[in-house]
């Protein structure tokens, strides 16, 4: 006669494994990395715009249009936009988590925050890549001087 050993679970099972979620770890790490990158991006941006060449006096529509004709500054501004927006949104997310006590309020504040972020990022990205200093059917007196009259 053979007996089958009953399968009895271990008396003490470890804390239930939920699958490793590192969301908070990555968001914390992102804040550090993006913060350092933003320091370089923003201060170089300020230096180029305000200090080099004619400095602040050179700042006008044509100056911005000229910068956005260069892929380097397109990518530069795009990175500033995305990093600053996500960095700020993540910061506000933690502030909401820390200080909004009611679940409903917390949810709606975050919905508002993410909506505003999405709109700003999408519109900003669109502007950087579709910017045309001389739209073809605009009134001539509104265009900068370097646009050739049609």
């Amino acid at each position: 006669m053979t007996t089958v050993a009953p399968n009895i679970p271990a008396p003490r099972s470890p804390r239930r494994l939920r699958g490793r979620t590192n969301t908070e770890l990555y968001s914390w790490l992102f804040m550090r990395a993006s913060g350092m990158l933003l320091l370089i991006l923003v201060f170089t941006h300020l230096f180029v715009n305000l200090m080099t060449g004619d400095g602040i006096n050179a700042l006008d529509f044509a100056f911005v249009a000229g910068k956005w004709a260069d892929p380097l500054w397109q990518v530069w501004d795009l990175m500033m936009l995305w990093l600053a927006m996500i960095h700020g949104t993540n910061g506000l997310r933690t502030v909401i988590n820390d200080y909004a006590e009611r679940d409903q309020l917390r949810m709606w504040l975050k919905v508002g925050l993410y909506t505003a972020t999405t709109i700003t990022v999408v519109l900003g990205t669109l502007v950087i890549f579709t910017f045309d200093p001389c739209p073809p059917d605009a009134a001539a007196d509104l265009l900068p001087s370097f646009c050739q009259a049609p």
Binding site: R15, R20, T21, N22, T23, E24, L25, S27, W28, T94, N97, D98
Partner: peptide
């Protein structure tokens, strides 16, 4: 693992 939780050290 416990402290990696949403309410752990990252707060």
């Amino acid at each position: 693992e416990i402290l990696n939780d949403r309410d752990g050290v990252w707060r």
